[in-house]
Design a binder for these strands. Structure first.
Length: 702
DNA sequence: AAACTAAAGCTTTTT
DNA sequence: GCTTTAGTTT
């Protein structure tokens, strides 16, 4: 495509962003303002008009999906394959660099990448070893993750006088966790970024080389960068300062994951003479939708003022429907979808139902099924998280990196070969003593005396499988998968359904070498799966970011859900909820339907819900409020019957003080169940919250 | 190794 | 409430 054509169909702001050649550029791109268009056209324009080699442009995104879309559009603009270009996620680009350079940091180039569950397994085994309550692993994992996102390594914690305020126990766990990763020659997601930063900070010569290689940088979804990602970007750009950051502070919804919106302000300070371009023309939504969105976000504190506008016209009226309960709400949505579909204007794929928490999806799904509407859940658990798929991948990981003890333990007894928990524990203890990987320890046990023959036999038959697979490590990945099937009998053991998934897995591995296949699999997420064929999309508001649909339903517009009750006490978190709502609303192109319920079942109790406080920020004439009465035939539905035992008749109602023979005094939080089987939830000072059956618990009322 | 039971979860989660 | 997982049983 000629350079002139690349500038056609761009508005003046978009054009000036595309024309910007050297120096720092910050593009504040409102929702639906064509930011991907700007990035891809700028990429193509730099290479055709300014003769910047495409391999010298580094473009970083957050999702594989965004990266792939960018590649595709650049391919169609330039007519050349974008496959080998430096366009990818922060994580995948870092992994690519580390594959070449990581030996400098003392890791092997065959390092493997651990996902959250792999990391979780390590933290749990560390906690077990340190005799710390294992259930704490989730919180610890997220603390470790945020430390790494702030570039604080275990060594940094140890070097700091008061360990940045972290208690000694946690520091020990973090140190040990990182040790274990190193022993396994493994990096977790956060390591990919942190290690790349350390690599360049510690090796200025290497940094210089990469700075020369990458003459231009582009960063997408800039408002979502965390400290380590910002630092990485800064390292690359500090020499030539040809950096273009594109983002929207109004769409920052990942603060809880370490994203720092303030990076947008920091950018202008760190890079002097930054040119700032605002993209405010929206090409997606009708004026009515933008009005709602504008009113919601206008109340946001500390935002950069901007106002989206459109020439698409007023559009359809927006409605807000209140149903009696969440079941009626779901039925209303399903019914409305059916009607829309029957009118023939929209296909199912044009429609999305968004919600705050995954829990909401179940009832929505039920209603969709009742109405015979095809739907699909976007996000959720991905193909690569399935047990059988993870197992086969573990075999592959072990072929590439035998030191990967997490993968080894995962498949040591899958399919069963008499290597149970007891055997693993014995080998692990030995491994700990010898400070070696489990694989090496197994080899050692096979050779040494002092172990029973039966143990040696079990271990050597397993090691033989791994070694015979390892001998074929140069084979194509799909052949390797076949070999795994052959040597382990996994397919026969797995059963039909799982086997079918594994055949799919083998298919997806065709034409990929082992390492790149493993990298892409490790960095894959549920969002990357095929787009909806012809079904309604159901997803969380978070997963909806970056997408658009002609018709959008947002369910659960109630206080407690939107904003979520966990976020209500904290103003910063409340602000993030507001932005989340804004993101949801701005997904809609033509029609927006907000819904809520008067009463909603939450866990065990039925809550009276109030309409979302955010609605108070929208003038009433912006939408149509509909109170949905329950259908006559629906009155007998399960929710209509409020269980009698919820009345305060029970002596063990919430608030009552009780005494337990073992745990002492506690306060009743809740009670439920039939008269002959009443369960109470009691908060004890000694052990925390317990669920007890009144029949057996022997409680004394105080 | 399946099949059961008890207990603990429970906001979102690009990688 | 419902789902997941850890632990126990047979």
């Amino acid at each position: 495509m000629t350079k002139q054509v690349l500038l056609n169909n761009l508005n003046p702001q978009q054009k000036s962003a595309v024309l910007h050649n050297t120096g720092p550029l910050l593009v504040l791109a409102g929702a639906g303002s064509g930011k991907t268009k700007v990035i891809t056209h700028r990429f193509a324009y730099l290479s055709t008009a300014h003769k910047v080699p495409p391999m010298s442009i580094l473009a970083m995104t957050f999702t594989n999906k965004a990266a792939n879309e960018m590649k595709q559009r650049i391919e169609s603009l330039t007519g050349k394959s974008a496959n080998s270009l430096w366009i990818g996620t922060f994580h995948s680009l870092s992994a690519r660099i580390l594959r070449k350079e990581i030996d400098v940091l003392g890791y092997g180039k065959d390092y493997c990448i651990y996902d959250e569950s792999d990391s979780g397994n390590i933290v749990r085994s560390v906690l077990k070893e340190f005799k710390i309550h294992e259930a704490l692993y989730k919180g610890i994992l997220s603390k470790i993750s945020s430390l790494k996102a702030s570039l604080i390594s275990p060594e940094d914690l140890l070097a700091n006088e008061d360990s940045y305020g972290f208690d000694e126990k946690f520091v020990r766990v973090y140190v040990k966790y990182q040790d274990e990763l190193r022993k396994n020659n493994a990096l977790d997601f956060d390591d990919l970024i942190m290690c790349t930063v350390k690599l360049f900070e510690q090796n200025p010569g290497l940094l210089k080389k990469y700075q020369l290689d990458f003459s231009h940088l582009m960063v997408d979804e800039f408002q979502d960068t965390n400290a380590s990602q910002y630092r990485l970007m800064e390292l690359f750009a500090s020499k030539h300062k040809n950096i273009c950051a594109v983002g929207d502070d109004d769409q920052s919804i990942y603060k809880f994951r370490g994203a720092e919106v303030k990076n947008i302000h920091k950018f202008k300070n760190d890079f002097s003479k930054t040119k700032v371009i605002m993209l405010e023309q929206n090409y997606r939504s009708t004026q009515r939708i933008l009005d709602i969105a504008g009113n919601i976000i206008a109340k946001s504190r500390d935002r950069m003022p901007k106002k989206l506008w459109t020439d698409r016209g007023e559009g359809e009226k927006i409605s807000y429907c209140i149903a009696t309960n969440e079941i009626e709400e779901a039925r209303y949505i399903a019914q409305s979808i059916k009607e829309l579909f029957q009118k023939g204007k929209y296909f199912c794929k044009d429609i999305a139902i968004l919600y705050r928490v995954n829990q909401q999806s179940r009832i929505l799904e039920e209603a969709m099924r009742e109405n015979g509407q095809p739907y699909r859940i976007c996000g959720g658990i991905s193909f690569y998280q399935r047990k059988e798929v993870k197992d086969i991948i573990s075999y592959l990981k072990l072929i590439a990196n035998p030191d990967d003890s997490v993968s080894l333990k995962r498949i040591a007894n899958c399919p069963p070969r008499q290597i149970g928990a007891a055997t693993i524990t014995r080998v692990e203890n030995e491994a700990r003593k010898r400070d070696e990987s489990v694989y090496n320890t197994m080899k050692y046990i096979m050779k040494s005396n002092g172990y029973t023959n039966s143990l040696k036999e079990k271990i050597s038959s397993f090691i033989n499988i791994i070694d015979s697979l390892h001998a074929h490590k140069e084979a194509s990945t799909s052949e390797l998968i076949n070999l795994v099937f052959e040597k382990t009998g996994y397919l026969e053991w797995a059963g039909e359904e799982k086997a079918a998934n594994l055949i799919d897995l083998r298919k997806s591995s065709e034409d990929k070498d082992l390492k790149s296949f493993l990298d892409s699999v490790s960095l894959f997420s549920g969002l990357d799966e095929d787009p909806a064929d012809n079904s309604v999309s159901l997803m969380t508001l978070h997963n909806a970011k970056g997408l658009e649909f002609p018709v959008v339903f947002i369910a659960g517009i109630e206080d407690g859900l939107m904003p979520h009750f966990h976020a209500i006490k904290d103003t910063e978190e409340l602000e993030e909820e507001r932005r989340l709502f804004y993101v949801g609303v701005t997904r809609a192109q033509d029609m927006l339907i907000l819904t809520g319920a008067r009463k909603r079942r939450l866990y065990t109790s039925i809550q009276e819900q109030q309409p979302s406080r955010f609605l108070a920020d929208i003038p009433e004439n912006c939408y149509l409020c509909i109170e949905k009465r329950p259908r006559a035939d629906a009155i007998t539905s399960s929710v209509a019957k409020v269980p009698v035992q919820f009345s305060n008749a029970s002596p063990y109602a919430a608030g009552a003080r009780v005494k337990h023979p073992k745990w002492g005094v506690g306060v009743v939080r809740d009670s439920y169940g039939e008269t002959d089987d009443v369960k109470v939830m009691v908060n004890f000072h000694t052990v925390g919250i317990k669920r007890l059956s009144l029949k057996f618990a022997n409680l004394e009322k105080l």
